[in-house]
Design a protein around this nucleic acid. Structure first.
Lengths: 258, 258
DNA sequence: CAAAAAGTTCCATTAAATGGAACTTAAGTT
DNA sequence: AACTTAAGTTCCATTTAATGGAACTTTTTG
């Protein structure tokens, strides 16, 4: 096994709630001999992938990773386009907007636009959430055929709350609904009291697929407002789909029911 | 030599002008046997550090790097604070603002705020420029004692243009001026027709140091506007320095001459 | 100051990285 | 379509690095 896999595992330890790691953290998180953890962190620092925080024993990602990460952000022009749409819709509606991508069964936020409303929803960039239990995830999963989803979730899944899909039947039903309507939604699922509406769009040339999402306090969003979000996101995504000639794009159904 | 060093070298190949690399690119850029380049890229992809663009042979940074890079951005709260100042000044003045950090003799842009003016200056995030030949770089170098700078540039340096410091004497003179005034400036140096004003601030706890910079078309900036930029940046940086108790912070000199 | 926790170094063993060459695949040329 | 060249991959023996247990050092805590 290459040390690169271990290094990537280290990077996966970082999140909005874990800005740095220590040798002991790695031992616990990755179940690794501490001799190994010690050397791995030092080697990653020597390579320039990590840096030590001040002169403490804490390690955090380096500016090199930030730089390379920015390249990802800007190279995937699909993300840029989608981000522009979400920025516009977020500014219009006042709620928080996100762009997310899928990695296997995880969804990762790539960009965010905080809303103006007092009760604004903030999920952090770079955090992973379960794809099947979020509107962004289901918007992206809905682009796949059911058998591919079954393969993806060969190990099954554990619903994080009572409102998340409890099994395959429920997941497929929700995906079918998303496909029929052209958007996915969630309420009270990953985070209590929070609703979200998402659409997905892809670029067949680069293979990228992103979800555009507007998130809001569930109690605060009227039916009219939800309809406005759906229309704006759907139209924006449709414009992108037209540019990329996305063959899997699911346009909004003409009758926006529910 | 660990493969991590090679992997880090690969990441350093990416920039705003090189969004993806191929086996041949690596052979040329890193002077590496192509058998090696081929396996390295594949291994990095398998580890999740890179991803292939569509089904081509091109590799680009993955979302994992973007995620870890975001952690860097937000973990270094100094960057956040400095970014807020630059965002405000950029919005006030209308010119482009940057936050940059130093890595050895290089300066790397971390965040940017495009200006409103028609002639706006855009340098890309994540690109490396020479520290000695930029206002951001000299603002940061001015925080070091001269002998440390001499050690840093033990191998000498090559001026990129006639307006950049041509040797140590000139560099030290400019750094002395920056220390005396509390800000660094450049004009026509890295980019023709572009001027910039920078101040630096650090956090002794984390060891972070950043430069706050406003960049503008040289012909477009009046003396009054420059003075306004200097005052705004200087005051913003001073507030941050007060919070972090930065012992090396150089406040604006009371008489803003030149 | 003692005890515990955290981190580093050492060592033999195991596994991965290396680079040259042969091979395969893709792209351009007549 | 066959030819030529460029680009990428796989194979191999050799060299080098990674591994994990234990001993050791440093730092933190009561």
């Amino acid at each position: 096994m290459s040390i690169l896999l271990a290094a990537a595992d280290v990077l996966r330890c970082f999140s909005s709630t874990r800005h740095d790691v220590t040798v002991t953290d790695l031992v616990a998180l990755l179940d690794m001999p501490k001799s190994n953890a010690s050397r791995l962190l030092r080697t990653m620092r020597d390579a320039g992938l990590l840096e030590t925080v001040g002169d403490s024993k804490r390690y955090r990602p380096s500016v090199l990773l930030h730089q390379a990460g920015q390249v990802y952000r800007f190279s995937a022009s699909l993300i840029d386009r989608a981000d522009a749409v979400v920025a516009r819709v977020s500014a219009e509606i006042g709620h928080t907007g996100y762009i997310s991508v899928r990695q296997g069964t995880d969804i990762i936020g790539v960009t965010a636009h905080p809303g103006r409303h007092a009760l604004r929803v903030v999920t952090a960039i770079g955090d992973r959430i379960a794809a099947f239990a979020s509107s962004t995830g289901r918007a992206l999963l809905a682009r796949l055929p059911d058998d591919e989803i079954r393969r993806l979730y060969a190990g099954g899944f554990t619903p994080p709350s009572a409102t998340a899909p409890q099994g395959f039947d429920e997941l497929f039903a929700r995906l079918a609904a998303a496909r029929a309507r052209g958007y996915a939604e969630s309420e009270d699922e990953a985070v209590r009291g929070v609703g979200a509406i998402s659409v997905a769009v892809g670029d067949p040339v680069s293979g990228d697929e992103v979800a555009l999402c507007i998130s809001f306090p569930a109690a605060m969003a009227s039916a009219a407002e939800r309809a406005a979000i759906i229309t704006s996101l759907g139209q924006g995504a449709a414009e992108i789909a037209a540019i990329t000639k996305d063959p899997r794009f699911i346009p909004l159904s003409s009758s926006i029911a529910e």
